[in-house]
Design a protein around this nucleic acid. Structure first.
Length: 274
DNA sequence: ATTCTACCCTGCAAGC
DNA sequence: TGCTTGCAGGGTAGAA
């Protein structure tokens, strides 16, 4: 489920239940994620108090007391989720990891496809290979049209792949790239180096607006989620073109087309996106 | 240096 | 009903 808004709302949702709580026990049922969960993660975490949670791109960083330079790194991959569970809650098939607290609540990691990861960073996160090369956060001021325009000069790669490259900007996944390219009127297959500064400015403004709106909606989703209802309303948001191949363009009624870039679906309007 | 391809894994929907 | 196929919100390593 996770694109950036869902990771952000996951962070907001678990924070009140997890911050300042001391870890009483750790149970790993399936170590084989994208990379194996470290063998010693149980002993590293047990007895420690979680003092801070950060999101960087689609990664979550959980810091322990006296250890601001070390952190637990969690990524949800394509299908992962975190929820707050109670001791009596049933353990489902893909609930791979539990972090149990002294107050009895459990931070439970689930990931059917196991594309996510749970790693221990024992060097400053900024130095970690997975985090060091990440581009700016999409909601930061640093991310603007000029930045994208500058960064894209001379690139022949399709603009959609360019804006989904985490080295360029983090947190823009397939859905948001598809949507923002549509509202900005940019053909997904246009060479990144040939998109104008003005178009990039439109794209950035639209991407930020869509992400912010999704985060707002995600809050509602997460309250249900944490409460144990587990009904993600993520898709309830209005997507204009994503997943709507063959339907009329909401702007001009031309039938929406689909191309595949990097083997990922890209829906677009051939009339509105040039 | 940039761009492309294959791959990690399970679940689900569509088609036969 | 049951089988096969293709697709899914991500991101890396290594090849071209």
């Amino acid at each position: 489920m996770p694109e950036l808004p869902e990771v952000e709302t996951t962070k907001r949702g678990i924070s009140p239940h997890v911050l300042q709580q001391r870890i009483a026990n750790v149970t790993i049922r399936q170590r084989s994620l994208r990379w194996p969960i470290p063998d010693n993660i149980e002993q590293i975490l047990t007895g420690q108090r979680i003092t801070a949670i950060e999101r960087r791109a689609k990664y979550l960083l959980l810091y322990l007391e006296h250890n601001t330079q070390k952190a637990l790194l969690i990524h949800l991959g394509m299908s992962g989720s975190l929820r707050i569970a109670k001791p009596d809650d049933a353990i489902l098939k893909h609930d791979h990891a539990d972090i149990g607290f002294e107050n009895g609540l459990i931070l439970r990691y689930s990931d059917p496809r196991r594309f996510g990861c749970i790693l221990w960073l024992d060097t400053p996160p900024i130095e970690n290979k997975l985090l060091s090369h990440l581009g700016p956060e999409p909601l930061s001021e640093e991310f603007d049209g000029d930045y994208l325009w500058q960064k894209s000069r001379g690139k022949s790669i399709a603009v959609k792949q360019f804006v989904m490259d985490q080295k360029v900007v983090t947190g823009i996944g397939n859905i948001y790239a598809t949507e923002a390219l549509f509202t900005a009127g940019i053909h997904p297959n246009k060479a990144a180096g040939k998109v104008s500064k003005a178009k990039y400015a439109l794209f950035v403004a639209d991407a930020k607006r869509i992400l912010e709106r999704s985060i707002t909606q995600g809050g509602t989703t997460l309250r249900d989620f944490v409460g144990g209802d587990g009904k993600p309303g993520y898709f309830a948001q209005q997507l204009l073109v994503y997943g709507r191949k063959g339907e009329p363009c909401p702007n001009c009624a031309t039938t929406l087309k689909e191309i595949r870039l990097s083997n990922r679906s890209s829906v677009y309007c051939s009339q509105c996106q040039k």
